[in-house]
């Protein structure tokens, strides 16, 4: 039980996927203009990340290791993730157009999102068991969600402040992310 708690707290707060590991910065900067799109993106990333980590773990355990083709790890993972995203998207469009309306536009963005592949590879490198690595992926997704929702809250508030001309949107967003990362460093060393 303690180990589960450990993994959860470290994945969400300490080595947060954005602030400590620098994974998934492109969608983080791109999609966080408004809180509604940001939360949509957060949920989509969490969902796909958990799903992808589960499948890549199985793939790794039953295909890569027995056949000693670890070097195919990157290509197999990314292939699975890309196709998975496309299939999920088509299914979503048919089953529930409303949910698709909320999450649909983010799915193509996810294929080029470093966080998904990053978390999958990290969970392999850390040699977690199946349950722990899925939990790790889910909590990293939550960490991403937490970071992007706070960030979009701030960006929406400073949208019409008179920021100097050359600092509008992306540079000021980067500086805000910097200060947020500084704040989250408070959690470092939390887990003994």
């Amino acid at each position: 039980m303690k180990e589960v708690l450990l993994v959860m707290v470290s994945a969400i707060f300490i080595n947060n996927v954005i602030f400590a590991r620098f994974l998934g910065i492109c969608p983080y900067m791109g999609v966080s203009k408004r809180i509604s799109t940001a939360s949509g993106m957060g949920m989509a990333v969490t969902f796909v990340m958990t799903f992808a980590t589960a499948i890549t773990f199985i793939l790794n355990k039953f295909v890569l290791i027995p056949f000693h083709i670890e070097y195919l790890q990157t290509i197999m993972f990314i292939l699975v993730i890309a196709s998975l995203v496309q299939i999920v998207e088509i299914a979503l469009k048919k089953i529930s157009p409303a949910l698709y309306q909320a999450l649909g536009i983010f799915l193509p963005l996810i294929t080029t999102n470093c966080a998904i592949l990053g978390v999958a590879i990290l969970s392999i490198q850390n040699e977690y068991s199946f349950f722990i690595s899925v939990l790790f992926a889910f909590c990293s997704g939550l960490g991403f969600c937490l970071a992007i929702i706070i960030f979009s809250g701030i960006r929406e508030r400073i949208e019409d402040a008179d920021i100097p001309e050359c600092f509008k949107n992306i540079p000021i967003a980067l500086i805000t992310a910097g200060i947020l990362a500084m704040a989250f460093m408070g959690f470092s060393g939390l887990v003994k």
Partner: peptide, 25 residues
Amino acid sequence: LIFVLPPGAFAALGFIIAIVIYFTK
């Protein structure tokens, strides 16, 4: 030391891009 850590990275890149935008504009 902060420039070696994540916050410094974000801020430094932010400043560089701002300077680039300033000159291109």
